[in-house]
Amino acid sequence: MELVFDGHNDVLLRLWRTMKAGGDPVAEFMNGTSEGHIDAPRARKGGLAGGFCAIYIPSGELILKEPDESGHYVTPLSDPLPLGPSLEVALEKAAIALRLERAGGWRLCRSTADVRAAMDEGVFAAVLHMEGCEALDADLDNLEVFYAAGLRSLGPVWSRHNIFGHGVPFAYPMDTDTGPGLTDAGFDLVRACNRLGIVIDLAHITEKGFWDVAKTTDQPLVASHSNVHALTPVARNLTDRQLDAIKESGGLVGLNYAVTMLRPDGRDNVETPLSDMVRHMDYLVERLGIDHVALGSDFDGASIPEEISDAAGNQNLVAALRDAGYADADLKKICRENWLRIMASAWHE
Rank of each mutant, 00 (worst) to 15 (best):
C133S: 13
F146N: 06
S226D: 06
E131P: 04
A118K: 08
R160E: 06
V228P: 06
N142Y: 09
F187N: 07
G132S: 08
G250H: 11
D184A: 15
C133Q: 04
S111Q: 04
A214M: 05
L202N: 00
M119H: 02
G132W: 05
P233A: 11
G122W: 12
G122A: 09
N142Q: 14
D175V: 11
G250P: 09
G165Y: 05
E248S: 12
N194K: 07
C133A: 14
G150A: 13
G155I: 00
L143P: 13
R152E: 04
F124V: 10
A235C: 08
S224T: 15
V127G: 06
V115E: 03
H161E: 05
P220D: 03
R110Q: 14
Q219S: 13
F210R: 02
R236G: 01
F124P: 09
D120M: 08
D218C: 07
I205C: 07
R195Q: 13
D141E: 14
G209Q: 07
D137N: 02
P220R: 00
V234R: 10
T206Q: 11
T232F: 04
D137G: 02
D114R: 12
A245W: 03
M130E: 05
L182A: 12
A192W: 04
A185Y: 13
D240G: 14
L140N: 04
T183M: 05
H129L: 13
V145P: 00
S159P: 06
R195G: 02
W211R: 06
T178P: 00
P233E: 10
M119W: 08
G155H: 01
L182M: 12
S224Y: 01
A118D: 08
D175P: 02
G150W: 07
A125S: 12
V157N: 05
C133M: 08
D114A: 11
A192Y: 05
V127Y: 06
F187C: 05
A113S: 13
V168Q: 11
F210T: 04
G209P: 08
G186W: 05
V115S: 05
G165E: 06
D188C: 13
V228I: 14
S249I: 00
L140G: 07
D212R: 02
E121P: 00
R241Y: 04
C133T: 11
A135E: 00
F124T: 09
T176F: 00
L151A: 01
F164T: 07
H161Y: 12
L108I: 15
K208N: 11
R195S: 10
F187T: 14
A126Q: 12
Q219I: 02
F210H: 02
S249W: 01
N194F: 10
A223H: 00
A113E: 15
M130P: 03
G179F: 10
H166S: 14
F210D: 02
H161T: 10
V228D: 03
A223W: 00
G150D: 10
Q242P: 05
P156H: 12
V222E: 01
C193Y: 01
R110E: 14
A214Y: 01
D137H: 02
F210I: 08
